[in-house]
Design a binder for these strands. Structure first.
Lengths: 219, 219
DNA sequence: GGCATTCCTGACGTGATGTCAATAGCGTGT
DNA sequence: ACACGCTATTGACATCACGTCAGGAATGCC
């Protein structure tokens, strides 16, 4: 049974060992849920005694947070090196890059957002908020709107909300196949453009004249 | 300490007792996370011995699922009794109703979506999917588009995705206060209208002519 | 080869969960 | 009223996951 890897006793550099444990944890948490994966499982998968996990990460929760952190920081170069054209064009490209990234890192990304909002857990919450914040920065940068000041907070809030739709839609694509890549591109690009070019100005104006063009808000 | 409620031993109808336990669980899971709440806590809060939880619900997970189920079925009358006017008007009202509902059930709703996407948990997943499906039906009904057949699946997928934005935006409103109610109304109404009246037709047409009006999708 | 450093593990204590036989409340028949 | 049966309810037990600690085993240095 346990004879397979019972070679000797390997002694590694702390960083190296830490990385091995983290990799094992990433793999296991990727399949099961937080509760369904025991530290014993992780220790076994990493070829290590269970207490070593505590030694390197403190406790199970810390290890888990580390995994989430590492997964959620995926979307880095989505918005870098965009050409110097219109915001429409840049956003179109940016959306394309996003689709590339999630398609390439499919598994990792799905597990990452799978664990999204583990709920009342303040730590996980904070990690995800920060990721949202960074994402909002990226969008503003792609839209050449880094400088806007009027209604900036509202704008950022709407972009963060858009992030919720982005994730949901990407999941529709990857796991349900209810939208193909091209449809997704149209959907996501159109939505963010509408948000920035129509809703945002409307919102700035709307604070004064509460009624909007199409329909009179009743009661 | 424990002397307070140590009256006798109450014997209730199963349904009644079950409801009491569920209520206690709802309250506790509302505050802490799944892992942070022990069955002992719930039993104590319900004034009951711990094994009774297993008797009624099987195990802790089942109880939890029951709580999630009960919380996620909140938005019932959001779309009933809408006047017989344009879809713009009906959607505006529908969004208003939604805002009313989440504002009223603020705490319960927040905990419900807090536990959203517990991830690799297939059961929770299924519950949330079903709720999404129902929500999509409601939107289609409000939009007077129950009958559409062409691209129906894509349309539903986009509406489900919109649900992700709806939740994120509502949370922005309720917990961060980064958007006020009126701004949220403008945002959500405008987005769903754009989705139904612009993106959806675009998507139907776009399958043939891949380019769209504003920008040429590169490479 | 001896020794210090520190990486690593076996063994223990604690707390949480699920199971089971035994008990006690409540309705029923007389 | 009283005994009786049904079953809701519980105390006690077994199991398992997690965190801690002192001691054992590699590696580097002289």
């Amino acid at each position: 049974m346990s004879s397979g890897s019972r070679t000797k006793r390997r002694r590694l550099e702390p960083e190296e060992r830490r990385a091995e444990i983290l990799a094992a944890a990433r793999r296991l948490f990727g399949d099961g849920s937080y509760a369904s994966v025991s530290t014993s499982d992780i220790a076994k998968a990493a070829g290590v005694a269970r207490p070593l996990i505590n030694h390197y990460f403190g406790d199970k929760r810390e290890l888990y947070l580390e995994v989430v952190r590492q997964m959620v920081i995926v979307p880095a170069p989505v918005v870098e090196n965009l050409p110097d054209t219109t915001m429409e064009h840049r956003l179109t490209i940016g959306v394309g890059h996003w689709l590339d990234v999630v398609e390439r890192n499919r598994r990792a990304w799905l597990t990452a957002i799978g664990h999204e909002a583990v709920g009342r857990d303040p730590e996980v919450d904070r990690i995800l908020r920060e990721a949202d914040e960074v994402a909002a920065d990226r969008v503003l940068e792609a839209a050449l709107m880094t400088g806007v000041t009027e209604g900036r907070e509202q704008l950022r809030a709407m972009i963060r909300s858009y992030g919720g739709m982005l994730r949901a839609a990407s999941r529709e694509w990857l796991v349900r196949g209810s939208l193909d890549r091209e449809e997704l591109r149209i959907f996501l690009t159109g939505s963010i453009l509408h948000l920035l070019k129509v809703t945002y100005p409307e919102l700035l104006a709307g604070k004064l004249a509460a009624g909007d063009g199409d329909s009179r808000p009743p009661v």
